[in-house]
Amino acid sequence: MSIQHFRVALIPFFAAFCLPVFAHPETLVKVKDAEDQLGARVGYIELDLNSGKILESFRPEERFPMMSTFKVLLCGAVLSRVDAGQEQLGRRIHYSQNDLVKYSPVTEKHLTDGMTVRELCSAAITMSDNTAANLLLTTIGGPKELTAFLHNMGDHVTRLDRWEPELNEAIPNDERDTTMPAAMATTLRKLLTGELLTLASRQQLIDWMEADKVAGPLLRSALPAGWFIADKSGAGERGSRGIIAALGPDGKPSRIVVIYTTGSQATMDERNRQIAEIGASLIKHW
């Protein structure tokens, strides 16, 4: 068994979910400061990975656009189908120029040979490839089937209604394609530690997140040497930005962190900087 497989195998399969305990108010002060700096709502939650206990939260039950963070949930649904014998990671999917949508850096290079389901999930999570996400959504039956998958695992909040790139529209008070920080954190924890997926599929999902190549300016920029992070970022219209992550010291994950913001006029660089500063405070007061 590899070190990575050993790491995931040791994560307990508890489903406990406790009331908020504000253990590190310094980080919450930074979250509130980020709201002021961005002129926007910021949602934040931090869960203990083992117990599910809420360590910190701010606007945990307010809706925020999911943006590309939904791609982790999508690949979780795909892996669930693989575990059930309904899908194969090695199955090759062919597509055409007409299937390509905005921001598809991986799929646009494989119009001739197509891509396997495994490769599409990797592209969707590590590079946030939008066409890969749409092709994967098609394999499970579309956005409503992803919502149904989430409902079946106990998440009655998170919903996907549209395809890429329309799902990033982020209209105020529009519940389409949204989640809440508390719901997303709990669902991510179930996918990474629960019995919904096999150990091999849980390991595959966290491996894809660990290999994320487009979230460098966010939490990763604040991470000390030797820390572990597996994450997925998202960006949308109307100043929307977000990240979901499993992270921790000593090379293994010990907490789930979810950060969303929407409604800002700030630049992407400024949104990234504020999320990175929240991450720096989190690590400082770990």
Rank of each mutant, 00 (worst) to 15 (best):
S2G: 07
S2R: 10
I3D: 07
I3L: 14
Q4H: 08
H5A: 06
A9V: 09
L10G: 07
I11L: 10
P12G: 09
F13S: 08
A15C: 13
A15T: 15
F17G: 08
V21G: 08
F22G: 11
F22C: 14
P25L: 04
P25A: 06
P25S: 12
T27S: 05
K32R: 13
K32E: 13
E35G: 04
L38G: 08
L38W: 08
Y44D: 01
Y44C: 01
I45G: 02
L47E: 05
L47R: 02
S51A: 09
G52V: 03
K53R: 15
E56R: 10
S57W: 11
S57T: 13
S57Q: 15
R59A: 04
E61D: 15
E62V: 09
F64Y: 06
F64V: 04
P65N: 04
P65Q: 02
P65G: 02
M66S: 02
M66I: 15
M67G: 15
T69P: 03
T69S: 05
F70C: 08
V72C: 05
V72E: 00
L73W: 02
L73G: 06
A77S: 09
A77T: 10
V78I: 11
V78L: 08
V78C: 05
L79W: 01
S80W: 15
R81C: 05
V82N: 05
V82W: 06
V82C: 13
D83L: 01
D83C: 02
D83S: 05
G85R: 11
G85E: 12
G85A: 12
G85T: 06
Q86T: 15
Q86H: 12
E87D: 08
E87N: 04
E87W: 04
Q88A: 12
Q88L: 12
L89Y: 06
G90S: 14
G90Y: 15
R91T: 09
R91W: 04
R91E: 05
R92G: 05
H94Q: 13
H94G: 07
H94P: 12
Y95G: 02
Y95S: 02
Q97R: 14
Q97G: 15
D99N: 08
V101F: 10
Y103L: 04
P105R: 05
V106A: 10
V106R: 07
T107E: 00
H110R: 09
L111P: 07
L111V: 13
D113S: 15
D113Y: 07
M115S: 04
V117I: 10
E119G: 11
L120V: 04
L120F: 03
A124D: 00
I125C: 06
T126A: 12
M127G: 06
D129V: 00
D129E: 00
A133S: 12
A133G: 09
L135S: 03
L136T: 03
L137H: 01
L137M: 12
L137P: 00
L137F: 07
I140L: 15
I140K: 01
K144I: 11
K144M: 14
K144R: 13
E145A: 15
E145G: 14
L146S: 00
F149L: 10
F149A: 07
N152Y: 11
N152T: 11
N152D: 14
H156R: 14
H156Y: 10
T158D: 00
R159L: 04
L160C: 13
L160S: 08
L160Q: 07
R162L: 04
W163M: 14
W163R: 11
W163L: 11
P165R: 06
P165V: 10
P165G: 06
E166H: 13
L167Q: 04
L167C: 15
L167T: 07
L167H: 02
E169W: 09
E169D: 14
A170V: 11
A170T: 10
P172E: 15
P172A: 12
P172T: 12
N173I: 12
D174S: 07
D174G: 05
D174N: 05
D174P: 02
D174I: 02
D174L: 02
E175V: 15
E175D: 14
R176G: 06
D177C: 02
D177F: 01
D177Y: 01
D177V: 01
D177H: 00
T178P: 00
T178N: 02
T178E: 01
T179C: 04
T179R: 00
M180P: 01
M180S: 15
M180Q: 10
P181D: 00
P181E: 00
P181V: 08
P181H: 03
P181I: 03
A182P: 07
A183L: 07
M184C: 05
M184R: 00
T187M: 09
T187R: 01
L188F: 06
L188Q: 02
L188V: 11
R189H: 08
R189G: 13
R189V: 10
R189L: 11
R189E: 09
L192R: 00
L192S: 04
L197M: 07
L197G: 03
T198R: 10
A200L: 08
A200V: 12
S201G: 11
R202E: 08
Q204G: 04
I206G: 10
D207N: 07
A211T: 07
A211G: 10
A211R: 13
D212T: 05
K213R: 14
V214L: 10
V214M: 09
A215V: 03
A215P: 04
G216R: 09
P217Q: 09
P217L: 09
L219M: 12
L219G: 02
L219A: 03
L219Q: 03
R220A: 03
R220H: 03
S221M: 10
A222L: 08
A222S: 13
L223F: 05
P224Y: 03
A225E: 15
A225S: 15
A225T: 15
G226C: 09
W227C: 01
W227L: 00
F228R: 08
I229R: 01
I229L: 06
I229Y: 04
S233E: 00
G234E: 01
G234A: 10
A235L: 05
A235S: 09
G239D: 02
G239H: 03
G239E: 01
S240N: 09
S240E: 08
S240V: 11
S240H: 06
G242V: 01
G242D: 00
G242E: 00
I243E: 02
I243F: 05
I244L: 10
I244F: 02
I244S: 02
I244V: 14
A245V: 04
A246T: 14
A246D: 02
L247P: 00
D250V: 10
D250E: 15
D250G: 13
D250H: 12
G251W: 07
G251Q: 15
K252Q: 11
K252W: 09
P253E: 08
P253R: 10
P253H: 10
S254I: 11
S254A: 15
S254G: 12
R255A: 03
I256A: 06
Y260A: 01
T261A: 12
T262R: 11
T262G: 06
T267R: 12
T267N: 11
N272K: 06
A276D: 10
I278F: 03
G279V: 10
H285Y: 15
H285N: 11
H285L: 10
